[in-house]
Design a protein around this nucleic acid. Structure first.
Lengths: 163, 163
DNA sequence: GAGCTTCTACTCGGATACGCCCTGTCCGAGTCCGGCAGG
DNA sequence: CCTGCCGGACTCGGACAGGGCGTATCCGAGTAGAAGCTC
């Protein structure tokens, strides 16, 4: 039960995309260089984000990605699910129905297995925390952690790269 | 981000072990037949549970596994972690430190990355739900779901198998 | 100088290898029960 | 009949293949901008 690196990359890249004006496109190459990660593989994560309609891509010079929605309308669960998929962490195989002592055939309408029930509750608790954190919240938190000086330098660095 | 089948198997087997008297050993073969799952592979899960000191195994005829502690002292997180390991679901690679604009070398004592912080909070929420559910609670819930008739038949079936 | 055409260079997107971990299986070491012989 | 011994069968535990998914990489299709030519 481990999340891939693409999730971390996607979160940081989305946080960066949320900082630039809405009409500016950032290419994958710049995102990769800024974060020190392999560009080719990062593009896979960006493709997944685009497929989930969280970002939009454009070709050619001055191309790249931009947010498809305001950062206040995107939460972290959207991003994680775009990368990792929307399937639950626990998939119940209903092995309780393999009990050789069952007196009647089980139906799909039977109440949910109590083991799966608890696992699903845990899964929902995890998702709830992620869904309650908006991308815009993340931007504010980063602002509070990174010095204004570095923030300004980074902004200039990005602007220089995409020129 | 998906849990393996061994987790489900382990949970159901632990629930069953919690039902038998404390001095009775249930062999893997019986657990496997009762749940309709491959015995050889299930033994891997049982080995993991034994390594985590949740169950104890004995060799020879009348051998098998029994709980190492009362079911009220075992929670679902113990079981899941015994199978899946204790590592967090999200491992922060600190790619924020790859920013080419940093003015000073980052130290390990720096405050935690806000991205990782949220991911860890989600991870803890997941673990909290699991740790608050004791194995003895699970037994009670199963009692409320399975008919007394099937429960009795199952008990007799188990007793017959280990004789 | 302005507008159109062409060309280049840059982007995304999908198709393609590689490696690791989960899944599934097998066999050997160790041990406890049950039968058997002897007293 | 009781006791001690021995054999056998059953158990766990670790060692051994196969497959699927995540990781990493590459190349082609398409496009927007810039340069150059014509008017």
């Amino acid at each position: 039960m481990k999340l891939g690196n693409k999730v971390e990359w996607a979160l940081h890249c989305m946080e960066l995309l949320a900082r630039v004006p809405a009409n500016i496109y950032i290419p994958t190459q710049v995102l990769a260089k800024f974060h020190g990660i392999p560009k080719e593989y990062l593009s896979k994560a960006m493709q997944a984000l685009a497929a989930a309609r969280l970002i939009e891509g454009t070709l050619g010079p001055k191309g790249g990605y931009k947010l498809a929605k305001p950062s206040s309308q995107i939460n972290l669960l959207d991003i994680v699910e775009a990368i990792e998929g929307r399937k639950k962490t626990f998939n119940c195989q209903e092995i309780r129905f393999n009990n050789p002592c069952l007196t009647k055939k089980p139906k799909k309408s039977d109440s949910i297995c109590v083991v799966a029930k608890t696992m699903f509750e845990a899964d929902q608790a995890w998702r709830r925390v992620l869904s309650e954190k908006k991308l815009s919240d993340l931007v504010v938190e980063v602002d509070g952690q990174v010095s204004a000086e570095v923030m300004k330098l980074s902004e200039d660095w990005i602007n220089n790269e995409i020129t």
